[in-house]
Write a protein that binds this DNA or RNA. Sequence first.
DNA 1: ATGATACTTGCATGATGGCGTCAGTAACCA
DNA 2: TGGTTACTGACGCCATCATGCAAGTATCAT
Lengths: 136, 136
Amino acid sequence: MMASVTNKTPATPRQAARRQAAVDRRLDTEFFKALADPTRARLLACLVKCGRPCSVTEVAACCDVDFSVVARHLGLLARAGVLEAEKKGRTVWYVARCAALSGRLRALADAIDEWCPSGGQGDRSGDRCGCDKGEC
Amino acid sequence: MMASVTNKTPATPRQAARRQAAVDRRLDTEFFKALADPTRARLLACLVKCGRPCSVTEVAACCDVDFSVVARHLGLLARAGVLEAEKKGRTVWYVARCAALSGRLRALADAIDEWCPSGGQGDRSGDRCGCDKGEC
DNA sequence: ATGATACTTGCATGATGGCGTCAGTAACCA
DNA sequence: TGGTTACTGACGCCATCATGCAAGTATCAT
């Protein structure tokens, strides 16, 4: 995952922004938005610690917000890839996708460490411009 | 970081929510809010890839938003611990705290993996109630 | 069929947040 | 001292979103 390559120091922020690197792809704001709400964080932690599929009704018992709010949050977390949903009959079973979640976090950490001065910096010659401005 | 312990399967989400574990502390919503905006993500990626302290003016040249917006975002990222700010004269130099950033991400990944079925589950007898409801 | 359970969806509301404009402050330069 | 540069802070506008309520749908039990 972390190739050993030559260090190439970027000159300016503009030139740095031009480079399309792993860190750009890994900084998925939709993913972070899903984790940026206190209620959702509580629900996610609950499901992670529970370690088994739970219904919306079960999870809602751990929260002071309305049932419909919990249902909406769980659906959002599932769409973000953080939870897995399976409908059986009239109940929906949600389970935390722990491996996928920690995998995404580690992938971003790796992508950042590639640029870290104390870490293994690399040759970015293969990276392409990620800037939306032509002259950048 | 990951102690080898006995597996204790939680019974219900309520009981799971009671347990105050590392994953609760690591799910810092303020931290994720800082990363949940596209403009901030772009600025952060720019600074990570640049690998050196940059002034607000420099970074603003990589973005289509107003200068004041960039200045606000950089200040927010610095307050979130993602950037480090140093004022010299009239210019503020921002640099990405890569090690701190990836460290936080890995710490959360570790905290999640502790509860992952395929990972090393553990004895949570030392964990305390994290629920805000008395009966929980 | 009747009722209960489990969830979804629409709507109103209040709060939060991103953005641009502009005025203000502080440091540097000539 | 006057002007420029670099940034900060105070608004106001607007979009998004979290929440609660209430109505609706689908499934299950009797």
